[in-house]
Design a protein around this nucleic acid. Structure first.
Lengths: 263, 263
DNA sequence: CGAAATTTGTCCGTATGTATC
DNA sequence: GGATACATACGGACAAATTTC
């Protein structure tokens, strides 16, 4: 299929993100773009210009070298950066493909940042902030969710909350049900960025909590009830009650994190 | 200062993020971790174990090679991936440092995703979703903001909104004032993750909009008024009014994006 | 099944550009 | 300016994974 791509396939198409952060390190250095960064932008432009979608294959390393006129090392480093951002996906022996464009890079950075702050400064606020953002998202979409669910039947969501209370009564935790509930509920906002962002924040939470030696446990019963209250409020069309239920739901976990802060 | 680091400095400390997405590409392949990924985790562990913070310097490439027992190429590729995530920052001729751990990787991925969907599928919903998430965040923290500002004086915020209405009356846009207003307001939620996330979403918005040939313009006056209404509601301690003002504020821009969707 | 071709993974050596002293 | 330390860039060689025949 693909004849070796020409250099013109790689020109300008993707917006440069040259605003933002002067990092604490670079004092004033303009620091001209390296071959690696040029190649990175070129590959991004190639994807845009060819209207590729996740899963589509990209030219081989050697083809990229010719097109961008860079050495294999430089191309490989550029591809690595794009891989870290999930913009491309590399499979040994098969080739390079357009990545899933998921928000996992955010998870990686946030989780690491929480670890750094926790270990270097004994500052656990980062994790608490992550959870509070998730709570804000849940509350912020209250009206959309309530509008979508008002007067409907939600047997699947009902079943999930039933399992929660059941497991809570046996003293078991219900992490799977928890994430499933929030994902399904937020899905009614019809916004993939929202649901993926919420899921990502939850992953940060789950990845960092055990590393800090904190336990989830505690108030299982109340948490299960809060989920049910959220659902009831949504079905009843009561946005205020929904927001209150969200607060009730996050109160126990926030208490744990707040306690870890003082200690 | 730093004697050449030993291998033991790099062992396990950082939580693996091996959950999540099977991408649309990899069918079932277990795909053992490459030298590059091992090195990546090792460097992350080094940062955690040594309690380094943004700006601190890391061992040189050659030292890293000896410690991890990998070639320069592998180490460089690992560093590139970490650089893409803003976990490290590399300065030519000086060395490698701990990065700013900002949320720019999210901006990069989201902006690119919006471009891909827009150009390949004529699907502009991604950008609209980004804006709606930002709106949800603003609404979700209404109660915190209102609680923090109720009964206070806010001369700086007042001045910003004054400049907005002034510029609106002259037919000028006020992007700088807009971002400044939201940043300062959200700052009262006392949550760095929240403010940075909001800023990042705004950057995605600004980066993608012009690339799609869409204009911001439109209803400058209403937008300026809505900002003032948000501030008034906060000072008055009225969370409901605050949320309504947020909706008013986002209505014009959402209308523009919705129109782009239909066309 | 096996051999060959394709493609990425890893390593090495060398030369160059950049920053610091 | 010179010396040193460091990252950048290149090209070649071989290994490992995958596909194809």
């Amino acid at each position: 299929m693909s004849s070796t791509p020409s250099a013109s396939d790689f020109v300008a198409a993707v917006p440069s993100l040259a605003y933002l952060d002067r990092s604490p390190i670079d004092t004033d250095t303009p620091q001209q773009p390296s071959r690696c960064d040029i190649t990175m932008d070129a590959i991004k432009s190639y994807i845009i210009n060819h209207k590729l979608v996740p899963g589509d294959s990209l030219p081989t390393e050697t083809e990229l070298c010719q097109a961008v006129k860079a050495s294999r090392s430089s191309v490989r480093e550029a591809v690595r950066k794009l891989e870290a951002l999930h913009i491309v996906k590399v499979v040994h022996g098969r080739g390079t493909f357009v990545g899933d464009l998921s928000l996992e890079p955010l998870v990686e950075t946030l989780a690491f940042r929480a670890m750094v702050k926790a270990t270097s400064k004994q500052d656990f606020s980062e994790l608490r902030n992550v959870v509070q953002v998730r709570r804000s998202l849940d509350k912020g979409v209250a009206e959309s969710i309530v509008a979508a669910l008002k007067g409907t039947e939600q047997p699947e969501l009902m079943e999930i909350t039933d399992r929660m209370v059941e497991r809570a009564e046996h003293g078991d935790s219900f992490l799977d049900e928890d994430i499933a509930f929030h994902s399904r509920l937020l899905a009614y906002a019809n916004n993939t960025v929202l649901t993926q962002l919420s899921d990502s924040l939850w992953m940060v939470h789950m990845a960092v909590l055990p590393s800090l030696g904190l336990q989830v446990s505690a108030q299982l019963k109340d948490s299960a009830e809060a989920h049910r209250a959220m659902l009831d409020a949504a079905l009843a069309g009561d946005a205020d009650a929904y927001r209150r239920a969200v607060d009730d739901h996050y109160r126990p976990i926030d208490a744990i994190l707040a306690a870890a802060l003082d200690r």
